[in-house]
Design a protein around this nucleic acid. Sequence first.
DNA 1: TTGTAAGCGTTATCAC
DNA 2: GTGATAACGCTTACAA
Lengths: 354, 354
Amino acid sequence: MATIFDIAKKAGVSITTVSRALNGYSDVNEKTRQHIMAIAEELNYYPSAAARSLQGKKTNTIAFAPLLNQHVEAEPFFKEFTGVMALACFKHDLSLLVALVDTTRNVEEIYRELAGTGRVDGIVLSDIKPVDERINLLLRLGIPFVAFGRTTGYADLNYPFVDVDGVAGLETVVDYLYKKGHRRLAYLSGPLEMSYAFHRYEGFLRGLKSHELHEDKRLVIGNLQLPEQAYAAIKQIFSLPAAEQPTALVAGSDDLALHVIQAVSDNGREVGSGPDQIAVTGFDDLPFAAYLQPGLTTLRQPITTTCTALLELLVGMLKNKDELAPVLPELPGMVRVGPKQVLLIPELICRESA
Amino acid sequence: MATIFDIAKKAGVSITTVSRALNGYSDVNEKTRQHIMAIAEELNYYPSAAARSLQGKKTNTIAFAPLLNQHVEAEPFFKEFTGVMALACFKHDLSLLVALVDTTRNVEEIYRELAGTGRVDGIVLSDIKPVDERINLLLRLGIPFVAFGRTTGYADLNYPFVDVDGVAGLETVVDYLYKKGHRRLAYLSGPLEMSYAFHRYEGFLRGLKSHELHEDKRLVIGNLQLPEQAYAAIKQIFSLPAAEQPTALVAGSDDLALHVIQAVSDNGREVGSGPDQIAVTGFDDLPFAAYLQPGLTTLRQPITTTCTALLELLVGMLKNKDELAPVLPELPGMVRVGPKQVLLIPELICRESA
DNA sequence: TTGTAAGCGTTATCAC
DNA sequence: GTGATAACGCTTACAA
C-alpha cells in the first residue's frame, strides 16, 4: 500500500503538502495539487483508516450491537432489522459494524471494548431491558449512542432513544378484538426480561382494563422462546373447560404467532375471524405475515422509520456534540416524547386471522 | 479514554512492561502483571484499535460488501444472507463490517478504499458478474478475499470462492417438471448481468436439452427486477395462443416466484401441481417460501453452509497466508472443485406449487 | 525481568 | 505556499 510518504517523494514535496492537497485545503498551489492528485491516483493511494482515527478523525462507522438471544425468536426480526439498518447507513454514507454480543460473557466488557477501541463513532443499542446497565455505562463513558427501545423507569429516560409504542399497540389490538365480540383473550409473550415484551404485555392489560375485562392468569403465558414451548402453551390452554377457553390468542410477536397458528391447527381448531374460529394476532408485520394462511392480523412495526430516526438522532449527535436536540424530520406515526426521545405508533394491519 | 501511558504512570513501570503484561507475554513478573491488570481494569482501559492496526495487527473484522441493486429483487435474500453472515462471524469471533456498494459510483474505487484503508482483515465479495473486475483488483492488491459466487470463465477461476451450483439446480427442476408431464416451460429470470442468474438460465437450457425439449424464446424473459415487470411478463405469456402457453413457470428466485404466483392468479389461472393448474417453481427457499399458498416448490440455497464455508476459507487464508488450501470441513452437499473452490448443490424442496 | 526508543501513517502546529 | 516536526497509542527490537 502506498503511503503519503511515497507520494511526497515522487512529487518532490513534503508530506505536509501532500496531506493538505489531498484534504482539499485552500492554501495549496493549484498546480501542485493537480500533480499530487495525479500521483496519488497512479499509486492507488488511500489514506490509512487507522492512522486517521489515531488523529482523532471520524471513522464514519457506527456499530449495531444487539444481544444474541439463543432463542431463535429474535432471528427473523433481527435479520430484517439489520438489513434495513445497513440500507439506512448506506444513505448516510456510513459503514455498519455488526457486532453480536454474547450474553453469556461479560456484556459490559464487550460494550466497553466497542466504545474504547475507537473503531466506531457511535453505537446503536438494542434489546433494551427494563433496567439496563449498558445505558449508564455508555452515558458514563461519553460514547455517542442511541437506543432502539427503552428502559421502563420513567424518571431516568435521559438518553436518546427511538421506541415503537408496544403499550399503545396492544391496547389497539385488544380494542379491535373486543369490538369483534371477543371477551376471553389469551396472551402469549416472548422473554419478559426484555422491555418490548414488558410493554406489550402492559398494553394488553390496559386494553383489558379499559373494557372492564379481567386478566385470567391461566391465559397468560410468558417467556416463550422455542416453538415447542409455544405448542405446549396452546395445548394447555385448549385443555381448559370449554367455557373457559379463549376465543382470541394474542401473540407478542409475529414469530410467536406463527407457532401459535400451527399449534391451533394441531389442536383441531381453525384460525380466523369467523364465529367458530380462533382469532390470532401478532406484532411486527414481518414480510411473512402477509403470506401466512390465513393472513396474519398484526401490528406493523415501522422498521424503516425506526432506523431512519435512530440514525438521524445519532448522526445529529455526532455532528454537533453540544446541540441538545438534533433536528429530526417529522416522520409518520412519530411522537416526540423528549428532546431526543421518540415513540413510534405501530399500525394495526387487519388480515384474515382475526 | 485511558491509554497505556496512564497505566504505566500509575503502576510505576514503563509502557513496554504494560504492553507485555496486557498481551500475555511470559517474560513479565507475575506480581507486576497482576498489578498492571488491576490498574487497567480500574481505569477502564481498552487498547485503541487504530493504534494496534497501525502496527500491522489484525482488526478481527471482515467486510461484507455487496453491490446495492436498486431492484428490491435482491432485498429479501440480502437481509437473510447478511443476518446469517453476522451469526457466522460471531462464531469466529469476528466483527462484520457491512458496506453496501453504490454501483452508480466508481465501484473499483470503493473496493480499493475498503482494502486500502486497512479497516478489515479480509473481504467477502458477492454479486459476482460473469466478468468481474473486482476480482482481479483484489488479487492484484493482495487483499485476502473470498467470493460468494463466481465468474463464468473457466480458465481463470484461480481465486477462492463458494458458489451454489445454479446449473445443477435448474437441471434438477426441469427434470422434476418433465417427469410431472410438463413439456412447455417458461423461464423468468432476474438481472442476467449477474453470474448466478446466468448459471441458472444455463441450467434451465441444459435441462431442456437433456429431455430433447427446445427453447421457446417467447417463454424466456430475463432482467426482471420490479414486480410490475414480472406481471407484464406473465400477462404477455398468457396472451399467447392456448396451445403455445406454458404449463410450468420456472422462476430464477423465490422473490420472482412470489410475483409470478400473484400474476398467475390475476390472470385467472390457478397455481399448483394439478392437471389444470400452472406449476411455479422458485430458487432460494427463503423462509416465506414455505408460507406461500400454495407452498412454493423451490431449490434450497444453503445459506448457513455457504457462510460457514466462506468464513472457513477466509479465516484459513488469514491465519496462514502461505498455505494454499485451508482445511475445509466436509459440509453436506459440498463439492470441492479446486483447492479453494467450493460448489454447493442446492436441494429441491417439493411443496404444492409444482 | 524491565526499560529505551524507533516506527506505524496520518494530521496539526508552527515556522519560514 | 510550503516544510519540519510533534503528536496520536500502540508493538517490538534492542539494551540493560
